[in-house]
Amino acid sequence: MPQNIIEIRNLDNKFGKQWIHHKLQLDIPKGEILAIIGGSGSGKTTLLRSMLMLQEPLAGEIKIFGENLKNITHAKAQKIRSRWGVLFQHSALFSAFTVLENIMFPMQELTNLTKQQQQDLALLKISLVGLPNHAANMYPYELSGGMQRRAAAARALAMDPELLFLDEPTTGLDPISARQFDELIVLLKNSLNLTIVIISHDIASLERCTDRVAFIGEGKVLALEPIEQLKLNQHPLIAQYFSNII
C-alpha cells in the first residue's frame, strides 16, 4: 500500500469574496510525479504556497509527511522543511552568490559538513543536473535561463530532499531545454527516490514526465488521472482547457 506524503482535506481559501479553494481534497503518494494544472486564477499558486507553509489556509487540513501543518511547532516545521526542496518559478537564485555558493549555502547553514565535503557535494549536484563544471563559479546572471533553472534545481536538491516542488519548471525554456529538463526530472525521481509535485502549463512536458495530473477548477480537484485520460475528460472546464491549448 502506497503511503501518502501529502494529504489535503477540505482546504478552503478565499480571495476577497471569491472562493479560490472550497473543500479541496488531494492525496499525493510517495514516489509519484504529480502535476497540478488548471486555468489562470484557479488557485494553483495558492495551493502551492499553502503546502509550503508560506500562506496559512482559511480552513482545512494539510498533512505533509504525516504532520498536520496547522498549529505545527517550529521544530517540526523545520524538520519538514529539511525534507523538501523547492524550485521557484523565477529560479530565485541568490544573485550575490555564485552557483556553487548557492548550493553550498543551505549545507553551510544547516549541517556540520566540512567545507571540502560541502564543495564536493555541491559539485556533485551540479553534475547531476547536467550543468558544466565551469558553471560552478559563475553568477546567476551570467547563465542562460535554462542553466539558471538547472542551477536552481541543484540548489533544491542540495539537502537531498524526499519531496520536490517545482513551480512552472519549463515555462520560458526553449523546447530542447524543456525536454532535457523533463528527462532530468524523471532521472532524479528514479535515482534519488523522490516524490515530485509540479505546477505547470506545459502540456508537452506533462506528457513526458508525470504519472498523474490533478486538474483544479471551481475550487476543487476536478480530476486526478494520467494525462492521456485527462485529455479525454468530458468535464466542460477540462475539455475547454485542452481545446484552448492544443
Binding site: L123, L124, S127, L128, A136, N137, S191
Partner: peptide, 22 residues
C-alpha cells in the same frame, strides 16, 4: 536495488569532480 542504483550514479559522477575554486 534502489540504493545500489543511487550509489552507482553518485560514484560515476564523483569521478569527474574537478574542484576548481576561484
Amino acid at each position: 536495488a534502489d540504493k545500489a542504483e543511487l550509489y552507482d550514479l553518485i560514484s560515476s559522477k564523483i569521478s569527474h569532480l574537478k574542484p576548481q575554486l576561484n
